[in-house]
Amino acid sequence: MNRPLSQLFNRLVIVVPYLWLLALFLIPFVIVFKISLSQPATAMPPYVPTFEPSEGLAGLWTSLKAFSFDNYIWLTEDALYFNAYVSSVFIAGVSTFLTLLVGFPLAYGMARAPTSLRPLLLMLVILPFWTSFLIRVYAWIGILKPEGLLNQLLMAIGVINEPLIILNTDTAVYIGIVYSYLPFMVLPIYSTLEKMDYSLIEAAQDLGCRPVTAFWKITFPLSVPGVVAGCMLVFIPAVGEFVIPDLLGGSRTLMIGKTLWVEFFSNRDWPVSSAVAVVLLLILVVPIVLFQQAQARAQEAGK
């Protein structure tokens, strides 16, 4: 291939991901943003103004003038939304931390396992994905409900006398999120730990470090890129999580995903639910940017 042609080819290759982002992220976002500036209406679609291409430029102008930020102001006036956001971020944050607590030892164990065993362990981590997410969450209802498997087991071995009330509480939501998102935490941490040169730990011990100190001074700092990636992969979807709080959480479990669902399907208020979605996106953009910066730093360090 000659030079100008290959340069053209290189540019075309770059265009593909941009087209992807444009079609699947930017355009949907613009549509949602546009709806969030509209007013609800009993119509199809259920909001005004709508723009008909037949009305021409004048029509476009009228509809543009009708746009307002009323829905965003509305979000600030009703404490429900603020509480839902805060509660979502809180629940997601706690869940992420719990997932890290469970996931790190798991990833560490996998990375230290004999090389021949690792593909099997990796397989086991990915295995739950082979069953529908929804079915797995339903299965937890069967485990956690008062007459469920967990309570039966605990009562049978005499740990408790009365069934624990776990289902329809925040605890159940935490259990559900930790369970569902565990692979997203384990895999990136495993990949950083697995790449780590074990002789670094030996060197630390050789220089007088006890194994525990060597872990905190060497292993953990070097696994931070994986920990950050794992936390982001859990935190970001957990904030907007709908299925888990809906199925496992109680009526008092307040999460923005549920609020959005109610606005959209029960109240048929597309503009407000769009505004909720846009604000949620803004809340998530901050951690995403932080995540990308962390990744860039990790790449810098890995050079």
Partner: peptide, 14 residues
């Protein structure tokens, strides 16, 4: 009371 210089050097990258 011995120290070792590793073949891979094992320098702490961070």
């Amino acid at each position: 009371p011995v120290n070792m210089m590793f073949q891979s050097y094992a320098l702490f990258p961070h």
